[in-house]
């Protein structure tokens, strides 16, 4: 009699993910609505639970990232990327950037990723689009990336970031996003919309069957 651990874990996922969102420190229902209207939320005193959630998110991100690195099957890579993207979205929720979190979900996980999977499905002839990498190459890339990671981590940990942890944290209020996009960021906003138009025409042209 073997315990089907994997099955149990899979069954637990919905509940576990639900728990993350449930326990997110943004208690919009509890906070004063007038405050959240102005997009002001007091800094979340997360404590242990926030730490646990952070480590869970980070674990999912890093585990699925590692899986992407080591996977030889391109479809699986795309599915692992879904794990990364979803966990990054949860991390945005932890960082009180709700709007970015949902945009990550709707645009990245719901749009870009599907596009990538679609591309994979259309371009791989055999059902298992596997590809081999030479072991020497893998090791070389690993060493390079490890050195790179070491340097970056040293820099990132030791740099003196302008930190103000006690300050009032501004949440992502829709009003702020709206005024931001129509005032300070008007030009990039317009530029990127024209860019999207041009890219749409380019992509449609490139993908069109003659």
């Amino acid at each position: 009699m073997t315990l089907r651990l994997k099955k149990i874990l899979l069954l637990m996922t919905p509940l576990a993910i639900a728990m993350f969102i449930a326990a997110a420190p943004v208690h919009a229902a509890d906070t004063d609505l007038s405050l959240s209207d102005q997009g002001i939320q007091t800094s979340a005193d997360g404590g242990l639970l926030e730490a646990l959630m952070f480590y869970a998110c980070a674990g999912v991100i890093l585990a699925s990232g590692l899986a992407i690195c080591l996977s030889k099957n391109i479809v699986r890579m795309a599915v692992y990327l879904f794990g990364t993207l979803a966990a990054v979205a949860l991390m945005y929720f932890l960082l009180l950037a709700n709007f970015i979190g949902v945009i990550q979900l709707i645009v990245y996980a719901g749009g870009t990723l599907i596009l990538l999977i679609f591309g994979v499905m259309l371009t791989s002839k055999s059902p298992w689009a596997k590809f081999e990498v030479k072991r020497s190459e893998l090791i070389a890339a690993g060493v390079v990336c490890a050195l790179f990671a070491g340097m970056l981590l040293f820099v990132v940990v030791n740099a003196e970031w302008p930190l103000e942890t006690d300050a009032v944290v501004v949440g992502s209020s829709m009003t702020q996003f709206g005024t931001g996009l129509l005032t300070n960021y008007l030009v990039p906003f317009e530029a990127i919309s024209v860019l999207l138009l041009v890219v749409m025409i380019g992509a449609a042209y490139m993908a069109r069957q003659e």
Partner: peptide, 22 residues
């Protein structure tokens, strides 16, 4: 959870469902 971006969250969730189907 009375989230301030609930509407987009729900649309996103309905949209993400497609990944499973694909």
């Amino acid at each position: 959870r009375n989230v301030d971006v609930a509407l987009i969250f729900i649309i996103a969730m309905v949209g993400v469902e497609v990944v499973g189907v694909i």
